[in-house]
Nucleic acid binder design. Structure first.
Length: 273
DNA sequence: GAACAGGCAACTC
DNA sequence: GAGTTGCCTGTT
């Protein structure tokens, strides 16, 4: 074990590794053992573990602020949830999902990943994303194993659809390249979009071919960390139909509706309903 | 082999 | 603007 730089990140109560990494928001974190995940973010491979009641990360002390930001640990999710209402159902969802952190992922990585997600299940999304990184990312050696950074939009923008054939991404390949071009040319920029309202950002990102309502909202929530974004997929449709009035408006949840969405979504996907 | 999947664009009315 | 259809690929 080369864990000489393990540093305390937060308590296990603040962040639940399984919930955070398995709730469908990210595709590059994998369990490497019990209570242990390895992922690639900020161009580095990093291990994170749960021990006793704490979460430790294999990163130097000076990088802790960076990782605390990535895991959104400065936000108090209990307080952000105050507008979610007090229905039994919402309480159940929140209890079940407590410990989920909405990651501050790289904008381009989120855009690309959720373009790939359309009409796909998580294992296949992970496989395609992984192949994309292996083929076009930079090699990262970590604890004797090879990992790969997420390729830059600039790099992907230079490719042809045929170059992406190894991904087996099907009709999404064209959309990946369209997204890469939009980001690399600055048509889509973090600065611009983060300064826009949710509605404006939605319009901006939907101008990219292959980005519809659902992918756009995932992008805004996970790539821009605008918490009012409320992605509705088939799971959410089912849950909303069952537990909320017809024509339910996410605005009811307030400006952190996206967090409510994650709690509902994660609970719906758990199989308990 | 047909139907379908965590969605989208293009087309129809 | 609401509804339908084809799309790559993999799985059932």
């Amino acid at each position: 074990m080369e864990e000489k730089t393990m540093n305390l990140l937060c308590t296990a109560e603040e962040m639940d590794l399984v919930k955070t990494f398995e709730c469908g928001q990210c595709f590059r974190w994998n369990s490497s053992a019990d209570d242990e995940y390895i992922g690639v973010a900020h161009g580095r491979a990093v291990k994170i573990i749960k021990s006793e009641n704490n979460i430790y990360i294999d990163a130097p002390k000076e990088d802790l602020p960076l990782w605390r930001e990535y895991f959104d640990l400065e936000a108090d999710y209990i307080r952000l949830s105050e507008g979610f209402g007090v229905s039994e159902y919402m309480k159940t969802c929140m209890d079940f999902g407590m410990g989920i952190r909405i990651l501050r992922q790289d904008m381009w990585e989120a855009l690309c990943s959720f373009i790939i997600s359309q009409c796909n299940n998580i294992p296949r999304i992970k496989k395609i994303v992984n192949t994309l990184c292996e083929n076009f990312g930079e090699e990262i050696l970590y604890q004797g194993e090879k990992f790969y950074s997420f390729p830059t939009a600039e790099k992907i923008a230079t490719l042809e659809v045929s170059d992406l054939a190894p991904l087996r991404a099907g009709y999404r390949a064209e959309y990946i390249i369209e997204g890469a071009k939009a980001v690399s040319t600055g048509t889509v920029s973090y600065k611009m979009l983060s300064e826009q309202s949710h509605a404006e950002a939605l319009k901006s990102i939907r101008a990219v071919k292959g980005v519809g309502e659902k992918v756009a909202n995932c992008f805004i929530l996970f790539g821009l960390h605008k918490m009012e974004a409320f992605p509705v997929d088939v799971w959410m449709k089912r849950a909303l139909k069952e537990h909320f009035p017809t024509n339910f408006d996410p605005k009811t949840f307030g400006e952190y509706a996206g967090l409510a969405q994650q709690y509902i979504f994660y609970y719906a996907r758990s199989g308990d309903k």
